[in-house]
Simulated scan of single mutants.
Amino acid sequence: MSSYDPADTPETPAGPSTDGGPRARVGTVVWGLIVLALAALIIISRLGLVALNGTYVLIGLMIGAGAALVVGGLLSARGRDKDTTTGKS
């Protein structure tokens, strides 16, 4: 006969884990922001608050997305370099 003993189960922390679990990818975040920005711009233009030129909007979004991807990639690479350092020369 087996009995359940709560002392035998390992305790798990209640807060978020800091063991380097899955992180959001930079590209996913940037594309999500692009979709949100486009949706906001479409709503604003349909309400008649601002007249938008589609070409300028797309150019601005692509410049912003490119800059965000480059900066996010550099920050990600910098963080990855810190994690993998062993301290040996």
Rank of each mutant, 00 (worst) to 15 (best):
residue 12 T to I: 11
residue 12 T to N: 04
residue 14 A to C: 07
residue 14 A to W: 05
residue 14 A to T: 11
residue 15 G to N: 05
residue 15 G to R: 13
residue 16 P to H: 10
residue 16 P to E: 12
residue 16 P to N: 11
residue 17 S to V: 12
residue 17 S to A: 14
residue 17 S to W: 09
residue 17 S to P: 09
residue 18 T to C: 08
residue 18 T to L: 14
residue 18 T to H: 13
residue 19 D to P: 00
residue 19 D to L: 13
residue 19 D to K: 10
residue 19 D to G: 10
residue 19 D to Q: 07
residue 19 D to T: 10
residue 19 D to Y: 11
residue 20 G to Y: 06
residue 20 G to R: 04
residue 20 G to Q: 04
residue 20 G to L: 06
residue 21 G to E: 12
residue 21 G to F: 07
residue 22 P to G: 00
residue 22 P to R: 00
residue 22 P to K: 00
residue 23 R to D: 09
residue 23 R to L: 11
residue 24 A to S: 15
residue 24 A to T: 15
residue 24 A to Y: 14
residue 24 A to D: 13
residue 24 A to H: 14
residue 24 A to G: 06
residue 25 R to F: 10
residue 25 R to N: 07
residue 25 R to Y: 09
residue 26 V to D: 07
residue 26 V to Q: 05
residue 26 V to N: 14
residue 26 V to W: 02
residue 26 V to A: 13
residue 27 G to C: 02
residue 27 G to Y: 03
residue 27 G to W: 02
residue 27 G to D: 06
residue 28 T to I: 08
residue 28 T to Y: 08
residue 29 V to M: 03
residue 29 V to A: 03
residue 29 V to H: 03
residue 29 V to E: 00
residue 30 V to D: 00
residue 30 V to Q: 00
residue 30 V to F: 04
residue 30 V to A: 02
residue 30 V to S: 01
residue 31 W to H: 08
residue 31 W to S: 13
residue 31 W to Y: 12
residue 31 W to G: 01
residue 32 G to Y: 05
residue 32 G to K: 07
residue 32 G to V: 05
residue 32 G to E: 03
residue 32 G to P: 07
residue 32 G to F: 08
residue 33 L to E: 08
residue 34 I to A: 14
residue 34 I to W: 09
residue 34 I to M: 11
residue 35 V to D: 11
residue 35 V to Y: 08
residue 35 V to G: 01
residue 35 V to N: 05
residue 36 L to N: 05
residue 36 L to W: 02
residue 36 L to Y: 03
residue 36 L to R: 09
residue 37 A to R: 12
residue 37 A to P: 10
residue 37 A to K: 10
residue 38 L to F: 04
residue 39 A to W: 00
residue 39 A to P: 01
residue 39 A to Q: 00
residue 39 A to N: 02
residue 40 A to H: 06
residue 40 A to M: 09
residue 41 L to F: 07
residue 41 L to E: 14
residue 41 L to S: 15
residue 41 L to T: 05
residue 42 I to S: 08
residue 42 I to N: 07
residue 43 I to A: 15
residue 44 I to H: 00
residue 44 I to T: 12
residue 44 I to G: 01
residue 44 I to A: 05
residue 44 I to L: 09
